[in-house]
Design a protein around this nucleic acid. Structure first.
Lengths: 173, 173
DNA sequence: GATAATTGTTATGGACCATATCAAATAACG
DNA sequence: CGTTATTTGATATGGTCCATAACAATTATC
């Protein structure tokens, strides 16, 4: 397992990057054998995840939303009236790290912190009108450009099976 | 998409962490609705990957091997006589970042850098005897404690289908 | 033989993750 | 009530991983 990020920029391309030379009459530099690596769950899982995130960022370039930011907007929309701690922990984000993330979204007027009247310690999170509009456009982009790609690649049935298995791993492994 | 690491230590537990209180007669604090998030490829993929790496580290605790280190040892064993650039780029590791990694493995006497006689710029990578022994034990641990868990969870056929689909995503997405 | 390219390396900065700690507010409880 | 404990958002800080630029030594190119 390994494989770096490199989102947009070409950089490494794990699979066939290690060729070096191979133009005309060249003998050396056979492709390396991955061997058992290609059967390792963690390896292939990580590689797939990087590719998917990479594609996600490309699809969202016009909206400048990262996967994490998108997940926050989705969750806030689905769960109005929740505070930072609840939203963050549901996503597995630690509260300290969630602060800067919200600062970002709030500075872009995508969501807002509202002091709760019940508990004046907590900040209720809501989407702004702009946030709702952006999220709506984001959903469409994800559906048409991102998720649709899975269907093209695997087919509808396999796509659902894959999501199901990954969910099972995420919850029960 | 989001979900942090937290390998061993409990920390967050994305799924049901955001409950807060819920002991006796408590009304508040319903579980948050994940909504469309649970169908997002990237989200579930990342969550699964974190869980798998987490489990991998637990299984390898006795050998102190990370997924990345394991992949390096596997690849060096399978491809003897290759240099740092070739091994690193095949794994998607950038050369500068590969240096410290090799320093680590070499300091633990798991692999060695050998100056090539053909090209005195490059370092040929080989496993030491200890490295081979450790890798052998690592493989057994991974097979019996880690990968076997997938079969218990998904079944043999589904496990293979999953690996196949992930590989396809990693290579063609 | 001068110039370009490659290899391993160092230095450095960014992104993400995790812990400790704090002030403000609230809860628990004698 | 008042004291103590807990919770919330926040700051500071350190670690890990990822990415780029630059360098010396060596080799390739012409």
């Amino acid at each position: 397992m390994t494989v770096s990020k490199a989102a947009e920029k070409s950089s490494e391309k794990p699979a066939d990057a290690a060729k070096g030379r191979k133009d005309a009459g060249d003998v050396q530099a056979e492709a390396l054998q991955l061997g058992e690596l290609s059967e390792q769950l963690g390896y292939v899982l990580k590689r797939a995840q990087l590719k998917v995130f990479e594609n996600f960022l490309r699809c969202m370039a016009s909206l400048q939303l990262t996967p994490a930011q998108f997940s926050v907007l989705l969750l806030v929309e689905k769960n109005p009236g929740r505070n930072q701690t609840e939203i963050a922990s549901t996503l597995g984000i630690l509260r300290p790290n969630f602060v800067a993330m919200l600062d970002n979204l709030e500075s872009r007027d995508l969501c807002a912190r509202i002091r709760s009247t019940n508990d004046r310690r907590s900040h209720i999170l809501v989407l702004t009108d702009k946030g709702k509009a952006v999220l709506s456009r984001a959903k469409k982009l994800v559906a048409t450009k991102h998720e649709a790609r899975l269907n093209d690649l695997l087919g509808q049935a396999n796509r659902e099976a894959l999501i199901g298995m990954l969910s099972k791993i995420a919850n029960e492994f």
